[in-house]
C-alpha cells in the first residue's frame, strides 16, 4: 500500500461512513437519498483508485464504475418516484410518514 493510494482510499471510506451515518440519522427522505448517493459514489472512487494505482494494466475497475454510475442513476430515479408517490399521499417527505407498518 503506497501513500498516494491511501490518500484517496481514506477520504472515500470516510465518505462511505458519512453516507451510512446520514442514512441512519436523517429524517428527510430526500436527505436519505443523498446519503445513499454518497455511499454509491465512494464505492466508485474505490474502484477507480484501485484500478489506477494497483492494476494499471487492465480497465476492469473503470468499467465497473461506469456501470455502477448507470445503476445508481436508475436507483435514484426509482427512489425519487417512490418518494413522490409517498408525498402525494402524505403531503411531506418526512420519514415519520412511513411508520404505519410496524409490529
Amino acid at each position: 500500500m503506497n501513500l498516494t493510494l491511501l490518500m484517496y482510499l481514506i477520504p472515500s471510506l470516510i465518505m462511505f461512513g458519512c453516507g451510512v451515518y446520514g442514512f441512519i440519522t436523517r429524517k428527510n427522505m430526500i436527505a436519505i437519498m443523498i446519503s445513499l448517493e454518497l455511499m454509491l459514489n465512494s464505492v466508485d472512487i474505490n474502484f477507480v483508485v484501485f484500478n489506477r494505482y494497483l492494476f494499471p494494466g487492465q480497465m476492469d475497475g473503470m468499467f465497473f464504475t461506469l456501470f455502477a454510475i448507470a445503476i445508481a442513476a436508475a436507483e435514484t430515479a426509482l427512489a425519487l418516484a417512490i418518494v413522490i408517490n409517498v408525498y402525494r399521499a402524505a403531503k411531506n417527505v418526512d420519514i415519520e410518514q412511513i411508520r404505519k407498518l410496524k409490529f
Partner: peptide, 25 residues
C-alpha cells in the same frame, strides 16, 4: 401501506447494494 412498503424496500435495497459493492471493491 403499499407506498410505504415500496419506500422501505427501495431504501434498504439501495443501502444493501452499496454495502455489497463496497465489498466487491
Amino acid at each position: 401501506e403499499s407506498r410505504e412498503a415500496a419506500a422501505k424496500y427501495i431504501f434498504t435495497a439501495v443501502f444493501s447494494s452499496a454495502i455489497f459493492m463496497l465489498g466487491i471493491s
